[in-house]
Design a protein around this nucleic acid. Structure first.
Lengths: 186, 186
DNA sequence: TACATTTGTGACTGATTAGTCAATCACAAT
DNA sequence: ATTGTGATTGACTAATCAGTCACAAATGTA
């Protein structure tokens, strides 16, 4: 494992555990088993580290979703796959997901390049747009529908992580709530 | 205005602007126009300040909601009032709402007394429980329905603050999405 | 007025921080 | 063997931090 990855892993863990404020760069380096100065060779500043991590993990999530989404499925099926993929990834990568949330509600988010953020949501907006055009989804603003879907995922994630449900019961809940979401939007 | 309130206002503003990490206690005192030491008379530590603010503003929101909710309205009307109140408060107090979100996704949240948090959601859970018992809401776990409602509010807030809509258009969107939410849950 | 209590002050400190840099290392090319 | 190169190191520093404390001002009380 290369040093860059070691630093990323340690930073992720410590940031989520103690927050940005509570995590010294020296502690990250120590946890990663590299020298203090090495961290600053890969990331010019602590701020750059935080922002790089955010983009890194959001990309990872995006890639996971699109990897599982087939292009020529019907809208409902495609959207379902995207929602389920997001939830599965989030539940399998709670630390990364928490980190994304943490940055998302922090002032750091303003430092993230707007174009990068835009490119990440683009594919999802496209599917919604298609759904509206075909009259399958309600004729509402695309951004609004996207916001409602995202927040549903977020809310369900919150619920599922706060309860100790079996995998079966978990999947059941995910299925049920997706149908509810779909009925709300279609 | 007493010094405690001055400190609270300045802390709120600076925390949201620069994060917990980026805000020195001395800067808060300076902004509030009080001496360094005065801050520590009202809040023993910086951590206590953050947590006190969180509880303070969540209480403010809770009080605003219950102030507007009449007890003997039907379930739908009561829930609608609660959702709309939340949104109105959030849109009128964006800084406070951002702060609440910020703490909520940060490691600080684990330091907040669990009983305090429980008491704050209790009243809302009660209404949902009643709705399920009367067969008006779907027979799902109370916590799940609460999570879905909360996240809908959160998502709609995100959307409304990212768009520059007129007050009329805003209210229209809120009305529409509440009906959608209700149809999803009932 | 005199005294007591509460409230406020800001200079101070020991600890910690992000970031630097001269030195060292592993190793490939000559 | 020798030289060159880029990655790695960790001791170091200037700055900043949260929190303290001895004292002063304000307020209350009689």
């Amino acid at each position: 494992m290369d040093k860059r990855s070691l630093i990323i892993n340690s930073a992720l863990k410590l940031f989520v555990e103690h927050g940005f404020h509570g995590t010294a760069t020296s502690k990250i380096a120590q946890d990663a088993g590299v020298a203090n100065g090495t961290l600053f060779q890969y990331f010019k500043t602590k701020e750059e580290l935080v922002i790089s991590l955010y983009i890194h993990f959001k990309d990872e999530l995006s890639e996971y979703i699109s990897k599982n989404t087939s292009e020529n499925a019907d809208i409902k099926k495609a959207l379902k796959t995207q929602v389920l993929s997001s939830l599965i990834w989030a539940l399998d990568n709670t630390t990364k997901f928490r980190f994304i949330q943490q940055v998302h509600t922090s002032p750091y988010i303003t430092q993230v390049d707007q174009d990068v953020l835009k490119n990440q949501v683009e594919p999802h907006l496209f599917l919604i747009q298609k759904g509206i055009k075909e009259g399958i989804l309600k004729p509402l603003p695309v951004d609004l529908i996207y916001a409602l879907i995202s927040s549903q995922i977020f809310g369900l994630y919150q619920y599922l992580t706060s309860q100790k449900l079996s995998k079966t019961k978990q999947n059941e809940t995910i299925e049920t709530t997706f149908e509810m979401l779909w009925n709300m939007l279609a």
